[in-house]
């Protein structure tokens, strides 16, 4: 769809000109860290993959920035990149929200899929984009992830998947819910062939994504401090009127309860994932 209206603000204008990899942190010189209130030079923050140099607080990072940090230079081949969502149920305002999400992220949907090498190890990869309608899973997100696992099965590749999601996308109703079953089926088929799937859970991973492919990895890794849950803390506080324990539903909490394998700081992701892929290289033969 074409849109000839004048950009509302500068960000829209920049995005309209197709500038990708725009950092998600504000364009000011300094960024204040919510973890330790330190002022950090924004440039330094970008260099440190949006992790506070003083306290290690993990800021939001775009899917493209992650991909650039993870994949060996020049190794990434995007798959299914031109798939776009349609308003299948005729849900009010959905087209507008999709349009704004595309402007805000310069992506076509809430997940980027492809193949790449990580430390020289060939792998299939998907990375969800949290700024695209809160990383919600509609039919296109479900289809892209399903296709990626099917492609990885055919090519005998492992899968590395980054999740960030508000859950299933309400605007696609029951069709979104069914993507949980569909993606789970594809993960199982890939796994049954003896292939490795590493899930990396980032802040926040919730709802239908937690209750499907996020929790189905052979190894499940999380970023420090990430909120990982099925029902969100606000919903639980409202429903049960109970006071939530400190640190409830953080990565650290899930590690203690036995639901994730490890917490790995962002800067160590590439190294850790490369090692895991290397240790499982026999699985792809």
């Amino acid at each position: 769809m074409f849109n000839f209206r004048k950009p509302k603000n500068e960000l829209e204008l920049i995005l309209k000109q197709g500038k990708k990899n725009t950092p998600t942190i504000p364009d000011e010189m300094f960024t204040s860290c919510p973890g330790c209130s330190a002022s950090i030079l924004s440039e330094e923050l970008i260099e440190s993959l949006n992790v506070c140099l003083k306290c290690g607080h993990h800021f939001k990072i775009s899917a493209r920035q992650r991909l650039n940090a993870l994949a060996d230079a020049g190794s990434f081949d995007e798959l299914f990149g031109d798939m776009e969502s349609e308003n299948l149920l005729g849900f009010p305002e959905y087209e507008k929200k999709l349009h704004n999400a595309k402007l805000a992220t310069a992506e076509n949907e809430a997940v980027i899929c492809g193949t790449c090498e990580i430390g020289g190890n060939p792998t299939a990869v998907f990375i969800m984009e949290g700024d695209f309608m809160m990383g919600s899973m509609g039919t296109v997100v479900g289809e892209k992830i399903t296709r990626l696992f099917e492609h990885a099965l055919k090519m005998r590749l492992p899968v590395v998947g980054y999740t960030i999601s508000g859950g299933a996308r309400m605007q696609e109703g029951i069709l979104s819910l069914m993507q949980m079953a569909k993606t789970s089926g594809a993960v199982m088929r890939h796994g049954n062939a003896g292939l490795l799937y590493i899930a990396v859970l980032t802040n926040p991973t919730t709802g239908g994504v937690t209750a499907s492919f996020a929790m189905e990895g052979d190894m499940v890794i999380a970023e420090p401090g990430a909120l990982i849950c099925f029902a969100g803390p606000r919903v639980i506080a409202q429903t049960t009127r109970q006071k939530l324990p400190p640190g409830f539903q953080t990565a650290e909490f899930l590690l203690e309860k036995g639901f994730i394998d490890a917490i790995v700081p962002r800067k160590e992701h590439k190294n850790t994932i490369a090692k895991l892929l290397y240790m499982h290289r026999g699985a792809s033969e």
């Binding site: 089926g185 199982m188 849950c229 029902a231 309860k257």
Partner: peptide
């Protein structure tokens, strides 16, 4: 819906549902 509560989350509501989806498929 699946229960929303502290105990349900502590014991892995998301993981339990995910496991059912995958295992039922198989």
């Amino acid at each position: 819906g699946a229960f929303c509560g502290i105990g349900a989350e502590e014991r892995g509501q998301g993981q339990a549902i995910a496991e059912n989806l995958g295992s039922m498929m198989e």
